[in-house]
């Protein structure tokens, strides 16, 4: 029962920090209201910290709650949360001195959409976590599945489940994974422009412009998002216009180039199930290829688009 053990350790660590008044607030996860669902928790007293937990449904990127905080804050952070934190520290959104990172090595979170698909949309009442497998239970069914098959796509691709920075580590570091091959991005790149356009039009016909993707993204923190600006109105406000939906997402994605940690928070948040990581990961791949840079993987590297050297290749200026 690895998860329960981690949960107990997280609780202890958080309580200690609050009791010793080392921090004013611990941001972590509590048991949510749906099967295998963690929900963000803000604990300010040791009693509140008693609600902290850890499970395969702690999928939100908590870095999103850490920008411009007053006082000392601790956060329960898995690999991707930490990468976003590092990126935000570099952008002066988080003061590292006021943040205490309780790092939790993460082997991936379970995607409820995949669970639903597996059981054909039936109402899931309980998900029992048995380590490498889970048992999905409903009114008159029970199905066993491999955890590896149910992980979020972002978690299957993730190479940084181990927090790259922490003040305290809960549990043990996990074995490193091989390089990300960006197979699905390469496949998309190989399509013709018309095919790519058709695919994106189909995906973004589903968009309802709820901006859950933007708001779930720790790196989307502009005080006024360009879509919200009304004077001038940069972009049409009607969700019926697929071109505008694509434009919104394209600008969002370009704006997070070199900053996106590929945590998948946007895609998880999207209620309409749009394949957003196709776009975010295209930029992750480009930044890696062009600048040999990845967002938030260490405290030293400067953010890729915040540096300039005279020998930058700038191939986009001469190609195409």
């Amino acid at each position: 029962m690895r998860m329960q053990k981690l949960a107990a350790q997280i609780k202890d660590a958080a309580k200690k920090l609050l009791e010793e008044k080392k921090v004013d607030l611990v941001v972590g996860f509590a048991e949510g209201s749906l099967p295998l669902r963690g929900t963000p928790l803000f604990a300010r007293t040791p009693e509140e910290a008693d609600k902290l937990t850890w499970n395969r449904g702690c999928e939100n990127n908590l870095a999103n709650y850490l920008r411009k905080r007053e006082g000392k804050v601790a956060v329960v952070a898995k690999g991707c949360d930490v990468r976003s934190i590092v990126a935000l520290v570099k952008e002066n959104q988080i003061n590292r001195d006021n943040l205490y990172i309780i790092g939790v090595p993460c082997s991936g979170m379970i995607d409820r959409k995949k669970v639903n698909q597996l059981v054909g949309g039936k109402d899931v009442l309980e998900i029992e976590d048995n380590g490498d497998t889970v048992v999905i239970k409903g009114k008159d069914f029970s199905e066993t599945a491999r955890v590896a098959d149910l992980l979020h796509n972002s978690c299957q691709d993730c190479r940084y489940g181990n927090p790259v920075v922490y003040d305290e580590l809960i549990g043990e570091l996990l074995p490193e994974k091989g390089e990300d091959d960006f197979a699905e991005i390469k496949e998309f790149e190989a399509k013709t422009a018309a095919e790519r356009r058709a695919y994106l039009a189909e995906e973004f016909s589903k968009c309802i412009r709820c901006y859950a993707c933007r708001n779930a993204c720790p790196m989307c923190y502009c005080e006024e998002c360009f879509v919200d600006c009304s004077t001038p109105q940069w972009i049409g406000k009607s969700a019926a216009d697929i071109q505008d939906n694509i434009l919104f997402q394209a600008v969002r994605v370009f704006h997070s180039a070199g900053r996106c940690a590929d945590c998948g928070a946007c895609e998880r948040a999207c209620p309409m199930g749009i394949n957003l990581r196709l776009l975010t990961r295209k930029l992750v791949k480009d930044v890696k290829e062009l600048f040999n840079a990845e967002a938030g993987v260490n405290m030293e590297d400067k953010a890729a688009l915040a540096t300039f050297t005279a020998d930058d290749p700038e191939p986009f200026l001469v190609k195409e």
């Binding site: 963000p40 928790l41 709820c210 109105q233």
Partner: peptide, 22 residues
């Protein structure tokens, strides 16, 4: 505190009816 301020709940809600005219 944990609410992200997105439009998912209102847009998916059958009774929410606020609108903007542009």
């Amino acid at each position: 505190e944990k609410c992200l301020g997105c439009g998912a709940c209102t847009y998916l809600c059958p009774t929410c009816h606020c609108f903007d005219i542009v």
